[in-house]
Structures are given as structure tokens and as C-alpha cells.
């Protein structure tokens, strides 16, 4: 039983109050839902049939999004290797891994779209701010995963190499790395998939990729073209997920 006694009553009351407050203070006019049907029908009507003439834009945008995801993931891997080592209990003392873990949690807490907007301000429009934003944002998760992979390996071979006189980095290379390699491969592929999905929307803030075209076509009421781009995005996401599932099966 989750809600028991006075604490339970107080918690239930608090949740009820929060819900009522949200209804009361926001401008939620449910009457507008009634007239939404025809408008949605009109919206979809204008999206159909999708305009196939935008193939060139789709190709260009998809390629750019893919490049942002690949280079962003590469950047995140390069940053995550040292940060992952510095965030692991096995490799460093608490005085080092605690602040590094806090830093990574802080990075994870910043939304990608916010980082992208800041980067557009800093380096201008185009794919470069997108790449930097993805690399930064993904490092928060990937370095944590790498640290967990290091800490998750069997300790006995590490002790054996220590006994043989191998230093910490040599132990990492020959006792820890062979054990963690499949985990790192799986985590990196997973993060790449997330990077690709997340970078689809970067174009909306001007940080490059296919999102730019969705934004442009919707704003200029060319819903049939927006529909084509949306279909392309859906196909891309499904394709990447299928490839990743197949890849991940190999690393077990």
C-alpha cells in the first residue's frame, strides 16, 4: 500500500490540489476541442497528397542530419572516454569521480534544443552548432554509461594484473577494456540512435539538418511538401532503429 495513514492522505490531497490548480489557472477552454475535428481534417487534407517534388531537399536535409548525428556522436565518444574514466570508481578516487559525476548530471539536465540555440548564437547558422550541441548533450549520458561499463567488469582479472605489476592504464587496457568492449559498443550505438532522432529537430532553431525544411514548409503553409519531409523522417527513424537492433544483437 502506497498511501497509508496521515502521510498518505496529505500526499493524495497535494496531488489533487495540483491537478485542480492546473485546470483552474491555465486558459484551457475545452469547448475549442469540439471544433477541432474539421480543422484537423482540413490540415490533413492540405497535406495530401504529399508533394514528391521536394526529393532534392529531402536528400540534402537527411544527409546533413545524418552527418550531424555521426560527427556529434564522434565528438561525444572523444569527450566521454576521458570523462568516463574520471567518473569511474574503479579508476579514480571519490575526490575525482564525485565532482565529474555531478558535472555529467548537470550536462544531462540541459535540453539539447537549448544548447543548440546557444551554439547558433555563438558560431552562427548551419550544421556546426548542431554538431557541437549533439556532442555536448550526448556526453552527459555516454560518459556515465562508459563509467558504469568500467565499474561493471569482473574485479578478479584486475587484481591479477595488479599482482603481475601492471599500472592502472595497462590494467584498463588489458583487464577492463576486453570485458567492457561489448557494452561500450552497444551503448554507443544506442546513443547514436538517440542523437539521430534528436538532431531531426535541430533545424527548427537553425542548427542544420532536415528539421529546417519542415519548419520552412509549415510556416509557409506548404503542407503537402511538409508531409513529404515528415514521411522521409519517419522512414529514416524506422530504418536506423532496424539497423541498430541488428547491430546490437552482435554485441552480446
Amino acid at each position: 500500500m502506497a498511501f497509508r495513514g496521515f502521510g498518505g492522505i496529505a500526499t493524495s490531497g497535494l496531488i489533487a490540489a495540483a491537478i485542480l490548480w492546473s485546470f483552474a489557472t491555465t486558459d484551457v477552454e475545452f469547448s475549442r476541442l469540439l471544433s477541432a475535428g474539421p480543422r484537423i481534417a482540413d490540415f490533413f487534407g492540405r497535406m495530401f497528397p504529399p508533394d514528391p517534388t521536394v526529393m532534392a531537399e529531402i536528400k540534402k536535409g537527411s544527409a546533413e542530419t545524418l552527418r550531424i548525428a555521426i560527427l556529434g556522436t564522434l565528438g561525444a565518444v572523444i569527450l566521454s572516454v576521458p570523462l568516463g574514466i574520471l567518473a569511474s570508481e574503479t579508476m579514480v578516487s571519490p575526490a575525482v569521480f564525485r565532482p565529474i559525476r555531478t558535472l555529467l548530471a548537470f550536462i544531462r539536465a540541459i535540453p539539447l534544443i537549448l544548447v543548440a540555440m546557444l551554439m547558433v548564437g555563438a558560431v552562427g547558422l548551419g550544421p556546426l552548432p548542431g554538431i557541437i550541441a549533439v556532442a555536448f548533450h550526448a556526453t552527459g549520458m555516454l560518459a556515465k554509461f562508459y563509467a558504469e561499463a568500467i565499474d561493471g567488469v569482473s574485479r578478479a582479472p584486475i587484481a591479477a594484473l595488479e599482482s603481475a605489476g601492471a599500472g592502472p592504464l595497462v590494467r584498463l587496457r588489458y583487464a577492463i577494456w576486453p570485458q567492457m568492449a561489448p557494452v561500450v559498443a552497444r551503448d554507443t550505438i544506442f546513443r547514436f540512435e538517440l542523437n539521430l532522432r534528436e538532431s531531426l529537430i535541430l533545424g527548427i532553431v537553425g542548427a542544420g539538418g532536415i528539421g529546417f525544411y519542415i519548419q520552412t514548409y509549415v510556416r509557409s503553409f506548404q503542407y503537402d511538401k511538409a508531409a513529404s519531409v515528415t514521411i522521409a523522417v519517419v522512414v529514416m527513424v524506422i530504418a536506423i532503429e532496424a539497423i541498430n537492433v541488428a547491430l546490437r544483437r552482435r554485441f552480446t
Partner: peptide
């Protein structure tokens, strides 16, 4: 040298690699 009860080998590495690990020091 130390021989462990649970062998303490790197399971995913080759036999030769594990023996060479003894040379690392």
C-alpha cells in the same frame, strides 16, 4: 606470482593474450 582460486582470467581474450598479461610487469 599469484594463482587465484577463481582463475582471474580475462574471459573474452585469447589464451596467449592472458599469458602475455603475465609479462606486463
Amino acid at each position: 606470482g599469484f594463482v587465484f582460486q577463481e582463475f582471474a582470467l580475462v574471459e573474452r581474450s585469447s589464451v596467449l593474450r592472458n599469458v602475455l598479461n603475465g609479462r606486463l610487469g
